[in-house]
């Protein structure tokens, strides 16, 4: 085990769905990710924990190329993200090819990012109709089913501005699921929500995990990580500090930095609530 990088799981024997090797990302010369190694196997739920500025959101955004990496490689389902490897030489992929890679990956944002000029139903239908070119009537049935699954069938014709934050986030999850992704990325999906709305969103995510969806979740919700995650990965200062079963990492951390972070989280009145600085630094 010691020969493997810390972010790489040893429990699975099959091919990983996501494999990241030595991922490096710098903003204006400052390295935010300093060589991340990370594997996620099909059906696994991995929670990324860590203090603000640790690079967890940046890493998540690198997976579906909202950020371009400066070093290392990321494969999703065997595809090298962003490049075509022709005999050892990397060739940049076109805009269309990158878009095609993203179709397989659903993403849920901290601030929902629903399209405000479309109803909830239209938001969910948009990508299957406009990107995949599927028949509107078929997509409509499926989209209504997805909205029903998140408990919002009565809100199909509402515009995002008419929905609460929790409802918007559940529509956003349906919108991502409408593309039948192999992988779902969640970027602090409950951080922008009023505390009483967090539960509904987490319930939807729990159900999704139970159905076997592969998920990578950046979160401050310790109880969610403990109950739902197959593995938690603790990041700090752009590196993976430790990773493992949630009970081991959260209840019995090995590294000083992990211990310090978890102690700080617990000393808060509401341990799961991010601070103002957290929200600001997730740029």
């Amino acid at each position: 085990m010691s020969s493997l990088p810390t972010g790489v799981s040893t429990r699975h024997t099959g091919e990983p769905l996501v494999r990241a090797l030595n991922v490096i990302k710098a903003f204006h010369g400052a390295e935010v990710l300093k060589g991340i190694d990370f594997d996620v196997h099909p059906g696994e739920v991995v929670c990324l924990l860590g203090p603000s500025g640790s690079g967890k959101t940046t890493f998540l955004r690198c997976i579906n190329q909202l950020e371009k990496i400066d070093g290392g490689r990321i494969w999703v389902d065997g595809d090298l993200m962003g490049y075509d490897d022709r005999g050892g030489t990397l060739h940049q992929l076109s805009d269309k090819a990158i878009a095609a890679q993203r179709c397989e990956i659903g993403m849920v944002f901290q601030r929902f990012n629903l399209f405000p000029h479309m109803t909830a139903l239209a938001n969910v239908m948009e990508a299957p109709v406009r990107v995949r070119g599927e028949k509107k009537s078929d997509v409509r049935v499926r989209a209504l089913g997805l909205l029903e699954r998140v408990g919002l069938s009565d809100k199909a014709d509402s515009y995002p501005a008419q929905l609460s934050g929790g409802e918007q986030q559940r529509v956003a999850i349906s919108r991502a699921l409408a593309m039948s992704p192999k992988l779902m990325l969640f970027d602090e999906p409950t951080s922008a929500l009023d505390p009483e709305l967090v539960g509904d969103v987490l319930a939807v995510m729990r159900e999704l995990a139970a159905q076997g969806m592969t998920m990578i979740v950046v979160t401050h919700e310790m109880s969610f990580a403990r109950e739902v995650a197959d593995r938690v990965v603790f990041m700090d200062g752009g590196v993976v500090v430790e990773s493992g079963h949630p009970k081991d990492v959260i209840d019995n951390p090995q590294h000083e930095r992990t211990k310090l972070f978890l102690k700080r989280m617990r000393s808060h009145d509401d341990p799961d609530r991010p601070t103002v600085q957290d929200a600001r630094s997730q740029g």
Binding site: R111, F112, A161, L163, S164, A279, Q282
Partner: peptide
Amino acid sequence: ARKNKRFARPGGAGGA
């Protein structure tokens, strides 16, 4: 935007 004024303009404030 009758129902929830706080979210009347998505992405109006904060990070991400």
